[in-house]
Amino acid sequence: MKIAFTAKGTKWDSMMDPRFGRTKFILIYDEEKDELTTFDNRSIEGEAHGAGPKTAQKLFELNPDILITGNGPGGNAATVLEKTGMEIYIGAGETTIKEAFQAYKKDGLKKF
């Protein structure tokens, strides 16, 4: 399973980014390889419009099975993510990546 997180940093103990479209980083944890890779999304700060669909498009390319985020994607981004078929879990905006992952494993997050 590949699991994506919206994050403010690039480490397991970095904080989650509660925002979807304007998240600073996207972290992908590959469970089989036990490997955490990062994707820098900070260029989105310069975009006045359409951050949601743009970030959703990146996720489409990264193609994880699961997305864990905070507030949840907005309407436009959700339309894109729907096409990808990935499962989305929300409500992990105020924790570290590690805590968000543990909460997901314990079924502690809300499905979007």
Partner: peptide
């Protein structure tokens, strides 16, 4: 400039509101 359309694989999605 507004990401009102994006390419997803073999599909172009248009967001008229953007």
């Amino acid at each position: 400039n507004f990401h009102a359309l994006i390419q997803l694989g073999t599909q172009i999605m248009v967001f008229p509101e953007l």
